[in-house]
C-alpha cells in the first residue's frame, strides 16, 4: 500500500491575546506534534471529543491551515513548499465535506450553481459540459436532474448533505475529508449517507479521512484510526487491532462511554471525572493525566512517548510503554491515589 498523506511532527498553534496586547496569555495548542500516515484507498478515522483538534488537523492536511511546525506531505510532496499555482492544483485533489449541511451551502444558489461552482472556479466555461457533469454527479449521490434548479431550502438535511458530497467530488478529488458528515442529520438518515460514502469510495477510488466522535461509526467505517485528546494522538493504528485491544485508558473510556441499546449484555461504564482541560497552556506531562483513572505520579510531569507497541498499533501512555530512561520524580510509578486536587479549567 502506498502512502497518500504523511504528517511529520505537525503542530498547529493559535495565538491567544490577553486583555492587553503585551500580556500574552499563551497559545492554543490545537494540534501538537502529530505524525501519521494515510494509505491510498483507505478510510482513516479521527476520533476524540469536541475541541481536541480533529478539524484543525484535517484542515492542515488539505492545506487550509498552515502548520506552525512540521510537514504535510501529499503524495510525497510538501504542500507548504509548493509555489502558489502548484499548490492550488494540488488542493483541488483534496476536498472537504462539512458537518453542517445547513450553513455550508449558499442559500441563494440553486443546485446547479452549487455543484458547478468548483468547476467554474477551475475555469470550466462550457455550459453543456458542466450541466452534463452536474447531472451525473447528482445521480451518483442519489438525487436527480429534476433537482437541478431547486434551492437548498427545498431539501431535507440528508439531501443537503448529498449536495455537499456532490460538490466535493465534482473535481475528481482523490482525497476527501468528511468532517462529522452525519452528526447534524436525523438518525434514520445516518445510515443512508454513510452507505453512500462507502459506495462512492469504492466507485471513485477515494481515500477518506473520516472525522467523528461516534466510535461505533468509526469502527464500522475505518481501516485505520487515530484517537486524539487535547491536540495529541493518544493511540493510533489498525482499527481492528485498536478495538480488539484498546491500550490507552482514554480509548478504553471512550469505548466504554458508548451507550448501548442492548439490554441483554451488562457492560461496565467508566465515567471519567472532570472535564477536558483548556488547550491554552495544556497540562504538562501526559495531557490526559487529570482525568485518567490509572494515572501515576510521573504522568503529570513526563510526557509519554509515542511508541509502536505492535505492528501498526501506536500508543502514547506510560502505563503501556513504561517511563523513559531519564531522571524521574520520586514515586513516579505510584498510582495517584488519593486523587490529588485537580485544577478546574
Amino acid at each position: 500500500m502506498t502512502e497518500i498523506m504523511t504528517l511529520q511532527n505537525v503542530s498547529v498553534h493559535f495565538p491567544v491575546r490577553g486583555a492587553l496586547p503585551f500580556l500574552r496569555k499563551g497559545e492554543i495548542q490545537a494540534v501538537s506534534d502529530v505524525s501519521l500516515s494515510i494509505h491510498r484507498g483507505e478510510i482513516f478515522g479521527i476520533v476524540g471529543e469536541s475541541g481536541c483538534g480533529k478539524t484543525t488537523l484535517a484542515s492542515a492536511m488539505v492545506g487550509m491551515i498552515k502548520p506552525t511546525a512540521g510537514q504535510v506531505l501529499f503524495e510525497g510532496v510538501d504542500l507548504n513548499r509548493l509555489p502558489r499555482d502548484e499548490f492550488k492544483k494540488m488542493r483541488r485533489r483534496m476536498q472537504m465535506i462539512f458537518q453542517d449541511p445547513f450553513s455550508s451551502l449558499n442559500p441563494r444558489f440553486n443546485v446547479y450553481q452549487i455543484v458547478s461552482e468548483p468547476m467554474l472556479i477551475r475555469g470550466e466555461d462550457d455550459e453543456e459540459t458542466m450541466k452534463a457533469r452536474v447531472v451525473e454527479l447528482l445521480e451518483l449521490v442519489g438525487l436527480s436532474s429534476q433537482d437541478l434548479y431547486r434551492y437548498p431550502s427545498d431539501f431535507s438535511g440528508g439531501q443537503r448533505q448529498r449536495l455537499g458530497i456532490a460538490r466535493a467530488i465534482s473535481l475528481n478529488p482523490s482525497f476527501l475529508v468528511c468532517d462529522e458528515p452525519v452528526s447534524a442529520l436525523d438518525v434514520s438518515i445516518h445510515a443512508q449517507i454513510l452507505n453512500l460514502l462507502l459506495e462512492l469510495q469504492e466507485k471513485l477510488n477515494l481515500t477518506y479521512v473520516f472525522i467523528s466522535h461516534n466510535l461505533a461509526d468509526v469502527k464500522k467505517m475505518c481501516d485505520h484510526l487515530a484517537v486524539m485528546y487535547l491536540g495529541k494522538v493518544m493511540e493510533a493504528g489498525n482499527s481492528d487491532k485498536i478495538f480488539a485491544n484498546p491500550m490507552h485508558p482514554y480509548t478504553q473510556a471512550l469505548i466504554a462511554a458508548i451507550l448501548d441499546i442492548d439490554f441483554s449484555e451488562e457492560r461496565e461504564i467508566i465515567v471519567l471525572p472532570g472535564d477536558t482541560p483548556s488547550p491554552i497552556n495544556p497540562p504538562s506531562g501526559c495531557r490526559f493525566w487529570q482525568r485518567c483513572p490509572k494515572a501515576m505520579r510521573g504522568c503529570r510531569e513526563v510526557p509519554p512517548e509515542y511508541v509502536e507497541v505492535e505492528p501498526d498499533h501506536f500508543v502514547a501512555c506510560h502505563l503501556v510503554n513504561g517511563f523513559p530512561d531519564q531522571e524521574l520524580p520520586e514515586g513516579y510509578d505510584q498510582p495517584m491515589v488519593p486523587r490529588e486536587k485537580v485544577p478546574g479549567r
Binding site: V187, S188, H190, A191, Q192, L194, N195, L198, N214, L215, A216, D217, K219, K220, M221, F243, I255, I258, D260, I261, D262
Partner: peptide
C-alpha cells in the same frame, strides 16, 4: 440505525 460495536464492518442498516 443505532450503530453498535459488534456490528459488521462497512455496511449500515438503513431505513429508506
Amino acid at each position: 440505525a443505532v450503530p453498535r460495536l459488534a456490528d459488521e464492518k462497512k455496511q449500515f442498516t438503513q431505513i429508506p
